[in-house]
Amino acid sequence: MTTPPEGGPLAGVVVADLSRVLAGPYCTMMLGDLGATVIKVESPQGDETRTWVPPERDGSGTYFLSVNRDKQSIALDFSAPDDLALVRRIVDRADVVVQNFKPGGLVRFGLDYETLSAARPELVYASISGFGSTGGADLPGYDLLAQAVSGMMSVTGSPDGEPTKVGVAVFDVIAGLHAVTGILAALRARDLTGRGDHVEVNLLSSALSGLVNQASAYVAGGVEPGRLGNAHPSLYPYEPFPARDREIVIAVGNDAQFARLADAVGLEPDPSWATMRGRNLARADVRAALIERLAARDADEWFAVLRAAGVPAAPILSIGGGVALAEELGLAPVTLAGDVPTIRHPIGFANATLPDPVAPPALDADRAAVLEWLGEQ
């Protein structure tokens, strides 16, 4: 087996990034982290997220900074013939093109898959849209819309409250990861056959896939899930519980864990609670019994006790607290991309070495380098 180069497993792969906002840039950042050369082609106004402030760092939106490290930026106007010619030259030298224009939006520029693959059948071309390229082609691809129509908001929030979105654009991220998976599969197939492929990803399909057991409840079980707040439809106890000072999450996934929980908190459970089905049928009684026992100690004390007993539990932390815990656990979650603090790439390798992350680029910062690469200087 060939040892991956020190530049990363994807060293030598060139990605023309014609995407903006989140799903596409997240995808291309993951590829860049793994060693691919990513050329981010932006409009003269730049990716919109550059101006999505607050919050910001040194005048750049932290939203933009979160998904654009390990890239080179060149600003080109597709409507200007000379600039469009440069875009085409970049694409002609790329192994992978990633774009999230509305379906059909690149046809007039000759940058659509059909046009490019006719001349370069080895090209791997990834299209990310909101709702696919058929009946939903005209719908704008915003994550909030996907959360609304997929059913995610119908299962998020308290039972007597309003439908609620997740606190991050989760389906943009999932779609970006699906695009990475498709691109890597297409590159592998190209190694075997010499042919590229058109990888198509959309937010709604990614959302339905990401709904996993909730979607399966409907399509396989005929059950329309509803909002349960922080509870789980099939597991119990699996939600936050109030301790003496604040809440602690307890996540029991099997009967043995519940037995350890009962022992750790000094609870003598009803015999019917020994099975998951029994606990689900007696949720109110199980919850009341646990709350009574948990009131004796603070959440941090219970976390230590339950962790020692092998019971899945966690304090409810802020994002800062989550970063601090990851540091405490030795996960080194924060690294520097240039002088910009960033969340470390989440994949570790035993043999491959990932390149040091590079700071997200200023708009058009790499024009000279890209033109030199194209032989223009």
Rank of each mutant, 00 (worst) to 15 (best):
G130V: 06
M152D: 02
S216L: 13
L354F: 01
I39C: 06
G7I: 08
P360M: 07
V212T: 13
G310P: 05
H178L: 07
V223H: 06
I90E: 02
Q257H: 10
D112Q: 02
G196Y: 10
Q214Y: 11
N100Q: 08
L203Y: 01
R344P: 03
D270E: 15
A289G: 08
A189Q: 15
G132T: 06
R344M: 00
L22W: 09
S117K: 13
G330H: 07
V38I: 02
P225S: 04
P240W: 00
G157W: 03
D95M: 07
Q377R: 14
L177V: 13
A299E: 10
I74Q: 04
A288D: 12
P315K: 13
G46L: 05
P140Y: 01
V67A: 15
R89K: 09
L317A: 12
V249S: 12
V149E: 02
Q45T: 10
A309V: 07
N254H: 06
P121M: 02
I174R: 09
S129R: 03
D339H: 09
A304K: 10
P361H: 03
D58R: 12
P240S: 03
E6W: 00
K40G: 08
V96R: 10
S43F: 00
V358R: 15
S79Q: 13
D33L: 01
L325Q: 13
A11W: 03
A365M: 07
E301M: 04
V38A: 02
D77Q: 06
A215N: 02
V38L: 06
I183T: 07
G130P: 04
T275W: 01
A148M: 08
P233N: 08
G7R: 06
V180G: 13
G182F: 05
A220W: 00
P4N: 05
D143C: 05
R297D: 13
G110R: 04
M276C: 09
A288R: 14
P225Q: 08
G141H: 05
A296G: 12
S272E: 15
G32W: 00
F131H: 06
R283G: 11
R246S: 12
T37Y: 00
D112N: 10
R307I: 00
L336D: 14
E301P: 04
R20V: 10
N280L: 14
G161F: 04
G24H: 03
Y26F: 14
G136R: 09
D263V: 07
R88L: 03
A256R: 15
H345Y: 14
I90H: 03
E162V: 15
T37L: 11
D58K: 09
P9M: 05
R120E: 04
V252T: 12
G141E: 09
T353A: 12
Y125L: 05
G8C: 03
F64N: 09
P5T: 09
R344T: 08
T156E: 02
V311S: 11
Y236E: 11
V87H: 01
A186M: 11
A326T: 08
F131Y: 12
G222M: 07
I183P: 14
G226K: 07
R279E: 07
N280Q: 15
I174G: 11
A352P: 09
A36H: 01
D143R: 10
A207Y: 02
P55I: 03
P159R: 10
N351D: 12
F303M: 11
V41T: 03
L145Y: 12
